[in-house]
Amino acid sequence: MPFSFEVIRERIDRIADSVIAGGGVVQAMRMGAPAAEEQVAEAERRLGAELPAGFRQVLLRCSGEFDFRWFLDEDAELPSPYGDIFRGELGWSLARLPEIDEGRRNWVKEVFSNPDNEYDKVWQNKLAFMEVGNGDYLALDLGEDDGPVVYLSHADGKGHGFVLGRNFIDFLERGSRIGFVGPEDFQWVIFADSGHGGLNAEGHEAAGFRKLMGFEP
């Protein structure tokens, strides 16, 4: 099935409506215009790297700036196994991409510089596109052809090195079906069956969460 950003938009609308109906808050819900080829080329020049095909496609055909954030009501307590979930967030900005990745590069320079260390290696040869807010990042793996989305933890988090999507489009498809829960790894780790296959949007936990939250049509 071809990728459709309209499907993602419809899911976002449904997520927002459900969160608000449950007493929560949608803090941001902005989808900018598609980027121009010249803007992508300039970002690549500043980064010194080509953007993976899936990410480039989303920037050029869908949105160069995206920001979606929601929070449950502060008194809400979800039942097990969803008790750690309290918000969802996803964002990217072509204009800020070099600035965001500079943060990752600084971590590599100062802390995760050893290419022979398995933990450090996860931080290397990546392109960070989103700051989690606690020192962690969501990033694209530049060592793979289609740029899988990988979680980078600075403090031995459960999700360090987990692949959240086989490429950026796959990540959007999977993440949108569970409300873009997170981005902290302790919130979404229950939806990751293994470290390498991507978020499991078809599993029992995901289906139960959609039913609980009312995300399904």
Rank of each mutant, 00 (worst) to 15 (best):
D146N: 14
K109H: 15
N114C: 14
G54Q: 02
F71T: 02
L140F: 09
G64L: 02
A139T: 03
D146T: 13
D116C: 09
A76E: 14
E77A: 14
R61W: 00
G83S: 15
S63C: 10
K121I: 00
I100R: 09
V58H: 02
D73W: 04
Y119F: 14
D101T: 10
E102Y: 14
E102K: 13
G83F: 08
K109V: 07
L47S: 05
E118W: 10
F66A: 01
E77I: 10
L127T: 05
N114R: 15
E144Y: 06
R105Q: 15
L140V: 07
G103Y: 11
Q124N: 07
L138D: 01
E99K: 12
K121F: 07
D101A: 10
E50G: 00
R104E: 05
L94R: 09
R104T: 11
G64R: 03
R96N: 15
D120G: 13
Q39N: 02
L78C: 09
A53R: 11
G83W: 08
C62Q: 11
L59Q: 02
D67K: 08
L90W: 06
G91K: 12
C62W: 02
L90K: 03
A49G: 00
D101R: 06
N106V: 14
A49Y: 02
G64N: 01
D136H: 06
P115S: 12
A128P: 03
A95E: 15
V40E: 00
D141R: 08
E144C: 10
F112S: 05
R96T: 12
F71R: 13
D116R: 12
R69D: 01
D73I: 02
P79R: 10
N117P: 00
E65R: 10
M130C: 07
A76V: 11
Q124E: 07
D120H: 15
D101V: 06
A76K: 13
G91E: 12
Y151A: 05
F129Q: 03
E42N: 07
K121Y: 08
E110L: 13
L94K: 09
K121H: 10
L47R: 05
G48H: 07
P79N: 09
D73G: 06
P115H: 12
P79Q: 08
L90D: 04
N106P: 00
G64H: 04
N125T: 07
I85R: 04
E42S: 11
A139I: 03
R61F: 01
P115F: 13
L78K: 08
V122W: 03
L127I: 07
A95F: 14
F66Y: 14
R96W: 11
E65V: 08
D73N: 14
P98Q: 12
V149E: 05
V58L: 06
